[in-house]
Amino acid sequence: MPAFSIIRDSTPPSDILKGAVVAMGNFDGVHLGHRAVIGAAIEMGKTHGRPALALTFEPHPRRFFSPNTPQFRLTDETAKLRLLAGMGLAGAVVMTFDKGRAQTTAQDFIHRDLIGRLGVSGIAVGYDFHFGKGRVGSPSLLANEAPKLGIEVDVQAHVDIDERPVSSTAIREALAEGQVTEATAMLGGPWFVTSEVIHGEKRGRDLGYPTANMRLDRDCGLRHGIYAVRVGRGRGTERVLIDGVANFGRRPTFDNGAPLLETFLFDFKDSLYGEVLDVAFIGFIREEAKFTSIEALIRQMDDDSAQARALLAANPGLFPRLGEIG
């Protein structure tokens, strides 16, 4: 498979895939609506014999405009690029969203960035995508400019599930309620996090449930509770998937401390300290609770593990399709 190319503001013109079709969006989560836009770009590229790229912005524009407001991102930059790399795209254009970008007019963005620097031959966007200073740029503006620029523009309508439009906001709301099955349906695959395994208090060893402990982003809005999870270890052909049960929360039985993701991997003995793992959330089991005795906690953990095994057995191999980005 050809390498997934990442084009940034600093990329020399000679290294840019000129004449590509681009799918434009923030793509937080790379959900079904985003996938429709990306799919349209890929099909347009095939029709015209052109590569297809995703064009996105980092940091997320919301972070630039509201730096002090908590932002629960479904995917950070790396996770987003790994999902995009798994979709059959030739690469991604990552534009830095800063003061200069925020002040760029829609017309300048079209003529200077899209046509002048990237030399795009086609554009696919969602019905609600806006760009440029004051969010003046719109799908209709692109469609009106297209004939003069000699490019094709495809505008995708919203994607619905059970008459509800799929959106990053709807997915965040689902995860905040622990509704990971609903989030999976909207994402087109399970929501996942990636983090390094760190040392914890090692209480799990004494309980018979040693865990891989991971800190998540401070703005993570996932509901605290117990989940059936599938863990990805390694990359590429070396990746292995391991089933498990995880607690995300503050451990009220012990210290009620900072939120931590603690994952018990079934039938697994190796040390994982310092490794970076992907943890995909397959099912919600229960909310976090405080127990009056260690014996009661262990009995509940036994039951949680049994439920997690059943949920995972009903969803064999379910895991995000991730590409390699180097």
Results as ranks from 00 to 15, higher is better:
residue 189 G to D: 08
residue 200 G to R: 02
residue 288 E to D: 04
residue 52 A to W: 05
residue 14 S to P: 01
residue 85 A to H: 05
residue 139 P to L: 02
residue 3 A to N: 05
residue 196 E to P: 01
residue 315 N to R: 11
residue 197 V to P: 09
residue 15 D to S: 15
residue 62 R to Q: 12
residue 307 Q to I: 07
residue 13 P to H: 11
residue 40 A to L: 05
residue 263 T to I: 12
residue 295 E to H: 11
residue 249 G to T: 03
residue 292 T to W: 00
residue 276 V to R: 14
residue 69 T to E: 15
residue 3 A to G: 01
residue 87 M to W: 06
residue 19 G to D: 13
residue 288 E to G: 01
residue 209 Y to F: 15
residue 198 I to Q: 10
residue 252 P to S: 02
residue 131 F to L: 09
residue 301 M to Y: 03
residue 238 E to T: 08
residue 141 L to R: 04
residue 302 D to S: 07
residue 69 T to R: 13
residue 185 A to T: 13
residue 218 R to G: 00
residue 66 S to Q: 14
residue 11 T to S: 15
residue 49 G to H: 13
residue 68 N to R: 12
residue 142 L to M: 06
residue 72 F to V: 05
residue 326 G to V: 05
residue 74 L to K: 07
residue 22 V to G: 09
residue 129 F to P: 09
residue 308 A to C: 06
residue 172 R to Y: 13
residue 33 G to Q: 10
residue 141 L to I: 15
residue 190 P to W: 11
residue 157 A to E: 15
residue 258 A to K: 11
residue 206 D to Y: 09
residue 302 D to Y: 05
residue 49 G to Y: 14
residue 230 R to V: 07
residue 48 H to F: 12
residue 168 S to V: 11
residue 152 E to Y: 06
residue 149 L to T: 14
residue 112 R to K: 14
residue 151 I to Q: 06
residue 37 V to I: 15
residue 97 F to N: 05
residue 142 L to F: 05
residue 37 V to C: 13
residue 40 A to R: 10
residue 93 V to W: 12
residue 33 G to L: 09
residue 69 T to D: 14
residue 278 D to C: 10
residue 159 V to W: 06
residue 105 T to V: 04
residue 262 E to K: 01
residue 195 S to Y: 03
residue 313 A to L: 09
residue 286 R to G: 02
residue 33 G to R: 08
residue 47 T to F: 01
residue 46 K to C: 04
residue 239 R to G: 00
residue 217 D to P: 03
residue 168 S to W: 10
residue 111 H to W: 08
residue 215 R to L: 11
residue 68 N to F: 03
residue 212 A to G: 07
residue 24 M to V: 15
residue 166 V to K: 04
